[in-house]
Design a protein around this nucleic acid. Structure first.
Ligand code: FES
Ligand code: FES
Lengths: 142, 142
DNA sequence: AAAAATTAAGACAATTAAGTCCCAAAATTA
DNA sequence: TAATTTTGGGACTTAATTGTCTTAATTTTT
């Protein structure tokens, strides 16, 4: 559904949403340990997100990654879009060149509305999902 | 969502459902040409399905692959289960070890019901989807 | 100004998925 | 029975994804 890289990135971003702000930056290594991930690999994902300005970073001692308040109001799906591209969630389930009702595949009408809802659910802002973790309604990296 | 192999396999099975029966077997090569796929690769997928008795085959001249009437009444999702295994559609979207409401990930309640509906839609028998192709309501390999 | 800590970038390695090839086994035809 | 045609199975190759390592750039501390 999502690539492994995307899953890691979403977890990391939500970890930042819960634990960081512009006064409290978090090093890649710390996130990697928290979400049990190889730290060099996570670094690369964080760099991609930073390059696209979805997360912020600063170098040197006391440096690290963090989310601005503005970033908290970004749809979570942006993380996936940056890492995986959009097509993964939009393409035809059976591999037709284009998913459309003009040339629908046999499962189109069964499945396309669900794909659309899926994307819509992930349009919810990062802060909404982060709140669930803060409230103890949801868990990261279990 | 599905692996490429699974997509190919579903297409091929639906092609068989539409065009074959126990009197009219179809060679791997013919299917491969129809759905524009490398024939050796498709052969391997068909062999996997045949080994699990989802499709039938016979060797030699006039041989080929076909679906029995019984096979037509198999849920389409079985094709995916044989090629991809079940976990791809059941695992946690964010990669938690287990998808459950006891330890839900932040997107669980947004997404898990959709995953479940997705699987349910694909529980429909192969014949149901094949009918859509016969009626011209749906298309294969466009 | 020098040392230390951190992100940035890109080359490199390992693993997995996708695709190819070869030969054996079985069935048909002649 | 011999030749032909097809599936069956496994080894092999290629491509994509995942993961590692090294070095440079930037910032802070001393
Ligand atoms: S055409 Fe296949 S999912 Fe829409
Ligand atoms: S726990 Fe993540 S989708 Fe259910």
């Amino acid at each position: 559904m999502l690539s492994s890289s995307s899953k890691y990135a979403v977890n990391a971003v939500l970890y930042l949403a819960v634990h960081s702000n512009d006064k409290n930056k978090i090093r890649a290594k710390e996130i990697a340990e928290a979400i049990k991930l190889p730290s060099p690999f996570l670094s690369k994902l964080l760099q991609s997100l930073s390059r696209e300005n979805l997360i912020s970073s600063s170098k040197g001692p006391t440096g690290g990654f963090y989310l601005t308040k503005q970033a908290l109001n970004t749809p979570l799906i942006e993380v996936v879009n940056i890492i995986d591209g959009t097509s993964r969630l939009e393409d035809c389930v059976l591999g037709l060149k284009k998913c459309s009702s003009e040339q629908p595949c046999p499962v189109h009408y069964s499945v396309q509305p669900l794909k659309q809802k899926f994307r819509k659910e992930l349009q919810e802002n990062i802060s909404v999902f982060a709140e669930k973790v803060k409230n103890g309604e949801a868990y990261l990296f279990v």
